[in-house]
């Protein structure tokens, strides 16, 4: 393999790994937040059943908790976007 081939190869291969990395990043990065947000909302449903009069408080806490949980998914999204448009 001579200098010229290496020079030609390095660009596409870097880009290919970046694209593959974007896929991995988003795929596995959304596993955890999906589960976690579900867990939060599920517990919120049970809490509403136990104390229906505290609905608005529970609801607000659920939304905040989900937004924080989702931040990791948003980090993966941002990283994946950077990699995809590398």
């Amino acid at each position: 393999m001579n200098e010229e081939t290496v020079r030609l190869l390095i660009g596409p291969i870097t880009q290919a790994f970046a694209l593959l990395g974007a896929g991995f990043c988003m795929g596995f990065g959304s596993l955890g937040p999906g589960l976690g947000e579900g867990y939060a909302a599920g517990k919120a449903c049970e809490a509403v059943a136990r104390r229906p009069e505290e609905y608005s408080q529970i609801f607000r806490t659920m939304l905040v908790g989900q937004a924080v949980t989702e931040s990791t998914a948003i980090y993966s999204l941002v990283v994946a976007l950077i990699l995809a448009f590398h």
Binding site: P12, L19, A22, G23, F28, S30, L31, G34, E37
Partner: peptide, 26 residues
Amino acid sequence: LGIARFAGAGIAMGFGAVGSSVGIAY
């Protein structure tokens, strides 16, 4: 590039669907 693009898209969507599905099921 084609290999990377298709593999990446498949992995992203395949595994991305699992977490949300199980979470919403919960």
